[in-house]
């Protein structure tokens, strides 16, 4: 294994058979996608920031997280890096959401 590769840089590496898997996207996944599009349009996120934050995930996290989990992580990191959202207010709001747990709507 080439140690100079990022975990995302997998072209040409050995891997298993392709299974033609797909699923209908859950509403929360579509919302993550929508946030990416809206923040890009408002010049608060570039595709390079999104990718840099995804690609800086450790190999273990990259493989364990689903696609849109990586995206919401990267979007959130970008907003923190830009100072749009603070870590404190984010942490407080996540705790509130978890305490509320009304099914995510």
């Amino acid at each position: 294994m080439n140690t100079f590769r990022g975990v995302h840089d997998m072209g040409g590496l050995p891997a298993g058979e392709v299974v033609a898997s797909e699923h209908d996207f859950a509403l929360w996944e579509k919302r993550v996608d929508a946030l990416m599009v809206l923040l890009s349009r408002k010049n608060l996120l570039t595709v390079d920031e999104l990718r840099r934050n995804i690609e800086s995930l450790g190999a273990d996290a990259y493989d364990k997280m689903s696609y849109y989990e990586r995206w919401i992580y990267a979007i959130t990191q970008t907003l923190i890096q830009r100072g749009v959202v603070s870590i404190d207010e984010l942490g407080r709001r996540i705790a509130e959401v978890q305490a509320r747990d009304d099914g995510g709507n």
């Binding site: 959202v85 207010e89 996540i94």
Partner: peptide, 29 residues
């Protein structure tokens, strides 16, 4: 749908809700 994700509030789903709400509170969207 991806199992256990549309009806379970995972940490990442909670993060999506939190970020969306904060962006709405800040009148960004």
């Amino acid at each position: 749908l991806r199992a256990d994700q549309d009806d379970t509030l995972t940490y990442w789903r909670a993060m999506e809700i939190a970020v969306r709400e904060l962006l709405i509170d800040k009148e960004i969207t």
